[in-house]
Design a protein around this nucleic acid. Structure first.
Lengths: 335, 335
DNA sequence: CAGCTCTTCCAAAACGTTTCGGATGGCATT
DNA sequence: AATGCCATCCGAAACGTTTTGGAAGAGCTG
């Protein structure tokens, strides 16, 4: 049956009672409730979502806005994130919608269309930037949102992030522990908070160890890693270890290393971050770091639901540890 | 302004007229229409989507159901597909929602929840299988859907696919043309149509060339490719060329090749399919094939919209050519 | 038995849009 | 002056749900 009215007529009850029985209100006799539930089950009744959304003023939709820079979009991470977030939302009857927005002046337009057209109850912002107009806008209008990643934003907001600063600090110290003295960092564009934090962790470790520590910045892709590594290796005294902001960059760096006749894991240590599937099968296998992405997706979903329910974002800030995954590209301790 | 009523009151017009002016009906004076449009613009009026959805009986939502096999989900292709499909839908004011469904007995439940709860106007099915209960179900109940990939399904349905059969046939002949006589195919699970077609193309080429042609099947992942290649290379007379169903498998195969002391591109040719970003940066760079994925996503969106409009699926079948991308792993012609 | 409380049920309003079926008035036609 | 025809506008219904504010009856109390 497609409507509450039909179901009510069929049961000889009012629409009100059927509705309240289905929603589990207390003012319906147990026998009645069971009769209603049974009938709903056998007829396969599903409430019309548009009607309930109109009436309740909720869309039961959460939207994730993905960065749509051409070529930068295809990070395997995001699909896993979508999957885990979507599954968690589905448990509460929420749908996950997805839109792509190019960073730039029109970016906020996308958000406005979503919000003012009441197309979503909450927004999940990914790939946060240090200066992020999106967080400013969403905070100003008081719209519920959750960020994956942090930002240099003064007001409180809900976020989940990996502790990239600590992870890169520790990874760099791991390299000095193996005897490396010239260590390079292939950084991603520092406008992105994740890139900035990883770079800071690296820099702090270099200060701790009293080493110079070189940094070259490029885009967070294989091509960017290739370019950055090429620059670094062209120096008079090239580094003996490369700590890369992402696995994609590390895979690009590996090619630059090969092209100069060096062997990763023997002549030069390489470490990435993300643990993408290809990392375990590169030559040599890429040492990397991993954030529990499925858990992150679930937490984002839960936080979004909590924000919709009016919860205070102050209580929703989570920085998770990153696991180091040693592989052949890390190499041995050196004399 | 948040409602049509407020806008109408402000303009001294009826709700009807404002609504019809905004929708561009002909029975509104030009001057009035312009006045209404201007007011809507300055007040930032956006129609409440729940209300219009309820009234029109359309959700303005298209849903893509992604295969959620753990670990198999993260193919970079899908995110590019989501992006291009989503963008095209957004042009028509449609949102793209995303759900993950595990293949299996409960799979159809997910579809039922979507359809019976009127949460979507059309469904995009990806990763079609040869025997695909989803197409049967959707066809039986007459719900608009579009498939990415084909199926052994007798009734007409709308789909976009790459011509994997021809692509693998041609790639195999390219290998024989280079002088290869023992060619192996690393196949993906043949329950998937794409895997079956690629395998068929390979087999046809082998028949054309009068060569045996070996096939080992495993999952479409790096690990699967590694296992399948290991089996194949353990033979007394191992093949001199590996044609792999996907790039992920090819990257796994490369590791198996290395472990046996062979050099891809010199001792053994390797070809993949998909042109994932990592393919250009493997050692050696992986020869592969590419389907125009963004165009595919756009076509899926357009077909979904056409099906919602009642168009006949018979007119919506598209098989696109696949482009071969030669790289170092293809090797040279052999004596 | 009047008065009260509880349980169980329901009528009707409301959410904001689209659309059906006119209503109104001006103008040209006869 | 009556008629018909446009162009322009509008009232009211409808979409299917949730929720407010009771109503009806049963059972208990004094």
């Amino acid at each position: 049956m497609s409507s509450l009215r039909e179901l009510a007529r069929m049961l000889g009850l009012s629409i009100t009672t059927v509705s309240r029985a289905l929603d589990g209100y207390g003012d319906v006799a147990v026998a009645t409730r069971e009769r209603v539930l049974a009938a709903a089950e056998t007829t396969g009744y599903r409430p019309n979502s548009a009607a309930r959304r109109l009436r309740r003023g909720l869309t039961e939709i959460v939207t994730m806005v993905l960065p749509a820079e051409p070529g930068h979009f295809n990070e395997p991470l995001y699909i896993e994130l979508l999957r885990s977030t979507g599954e968690r939302l589905a448990q509460q009857g929420y749908d996950l919608t997805l839109i792509a927005a190019l960073p730039g002046p029109d970016e906020l337009k996308t958000y406005r269309r979503l919000i003012e057209g009441r197309r979503t109850d909450a927004i999940i912002v990914v790939r946060t930037r240090r200066e992020d107009a999106r967080l400013r806008y969403l905070t100003d209008i008081g719209f519920p949102f959750v960020a994956m990643g942090r930002s240099d934003f003064a007001e409180p907001y809900a976020y989940v992030d990996g502790d990239g600063e600590a992870a890169f600090h520790d990874a760099a110290l791991r390299l000095t522990g193996l005897g490396h003295r010239r260590i390079g960092h292939l950084a991603a564009p520092s406008a992105f908070t994740f890139a900035h934090l990883r770079r800071s962790g690296f820099a702090r470790a270099m200060r701790d160890a009293g080493l110079p520590g070189e940094i070259v910045e490029d885009s967070a892709t294989e091509a960017g890693g290739y370019r950055a590594a090429s620059v670094m290796l062209a120096q008079a005294e090239p580094p003996s270890a490369l700590l890369c902001a992402t696995d994609s960059m590390a895979l690009g760096a590996m090619r630059a290393v090969r092209e100069r006749g060096l062997v990763a894991g023997r002549d030069i240590a390489i470490i990435g971050h993300d643990n993408i599937p290809a990392a375990a099968f590169s030559d040599p296998a890429l040492a990397t770091m991993e954030l529990p992405i499925a858990a992150t997706g679930r937490r984002l979903a839960e936080m979004a639901l909590a924000r919709i329910g009016g919860a205070d974002p102050r209580d929703m800030t989570e920085i998770n540890p990153v696991e180091f995954i040693p592989r052949a590209s890390l190499g041995e301790a050196r004399g």
